[in-house]
Amino acid sequence: MSIDLLEPFTVPFVRRAVIGGVLLSAVSALVGVWVIVRGMTFLGEAMSHGMLPGVAIAALLGGSLVLGAAVSAFAMALGVNALRRNKRFGQDTSIGLLFVGMLSIGVILVSHSQSFATDLTAFLFGDVLAIRPEDLGLLLGALAFVALVSVPLYRPFLVLSFDPRKAQTLGLRPDLANVAMLTLLTITIAVSFHVVGTLLSFGMLIAPSAGALLVARRIPTVMAVAFAIGSFSTVVGVLVSWNAGTAAGASIAATAVATFFALAGVVQFVERRSAKRPVTEFSS
């Protein structure tokens, strides 16, 4: 039984899914690298789940789910930013408390909906094959905004990631740069949950960037490699979903994570080979 790899791409909704995944990969690459470099991984994970109250309220009021997700995620980020000044406990404690609190409120709100199971499943896992043309426009707009903000703030983001005190000394306004980074993270999470769901959006944000950091060092190169990994994962994930009948969003995220571990294995193998290689000196 032969498998026609091009057959799925003749279907309009599959083409939209691939285009949406590629656009999401570009947005995630521009933001995910900074999230890892700045040690914001746990915050990103918490924000991806902290969207639920905003999504629930938006659904109950008949408003925009993406806007509700963005407002809820940003409110959580501001809460974490405010609590981090408390000297009695660390930032991870405040993130954990807000994470559980926001998720609990969201579940309580959604539980009042008659379609609780359907709503929660769609929120958690998304439906990449249900992407509409207007969703592609939203992703394209998010990519344009994130790129326009990232380019002029590249230097503040870079210095802030490695030496916040130096950023202050150089007059790069680290507080403003931090708010800008939280805003970009909020936008990325908000637009991605509609594609792959809140449980998988974090994987698309982190896995390609983490894989890229294994093989590249300069931030622009890392972002380019992360975009390539994310796009590759989208195409492979959609093909796996089409031929194996699996969930498309989960297949995409699983491919991204599998690619990371494959790269990690290759890098580790090469490093071990290099370490074991004997150094021979030849004399004339």
Rank of each mutant, 00 (worst) to 15 (best):
H112M: 15
S115Y: 13
S115M: 08
A117D: 14
T118D: 13
D119E: 06
D119N: 01
L120H: 02
T121S: 14
F125Y: 08
D127E: 14
L129C: 11
A130L: 09
A130V: 03
I131F: 01
I131R: 02
R132H: 00
D135T: 07
L136K: 04
L136G: 03
L136Q: 01
L139R: 02
L139N: 07
L139S: 03
L140M: 02
A144P: 05
A144N: 00
F145A: 08
V146S: 12
L148N: 10
L148T: 12
S150Q: 03
V151T: 13
V151L: 11
P152K: 05
L153P: 07
Y154C: 04
Y154W: 07
R155G: 11
F157A: 08
V159E: 09
L160V: 06
S161I: 05
P164C: 09
P164F: 02
K166R: 13
K166H: 11
A167V: 06
T169F: 15
T169I: 14
G171L: 05
R173D: 03
R173F: 05
P174E: 00
D175S: 13
D175L: 14
V179H: 15
A180Q: 13
A180M: 15
A180C: 15
M181G: 03
M181V: 09
L182P: 01
T183A: 15
L184H: 04
L184W: 00
L185F: 01
I187Y: 06
I189D: 10
I189E: 04
V191W: 00
S192I: 06
S192N: 07
S192P: 10
S192C: 10
F193R: 03
H194A: 14
V196D: 06
L199Y: 04
F202K: 12
G203V: 09
M204A: 07
L205K: 04
P208T: 11
P208D: 14
P208M: 14
S209D: 10
A210T: 10
A210E: 04
G211E: 02
L213D: 14
L213C: 10
L214A: 14
L214C: 12
V215T: 09
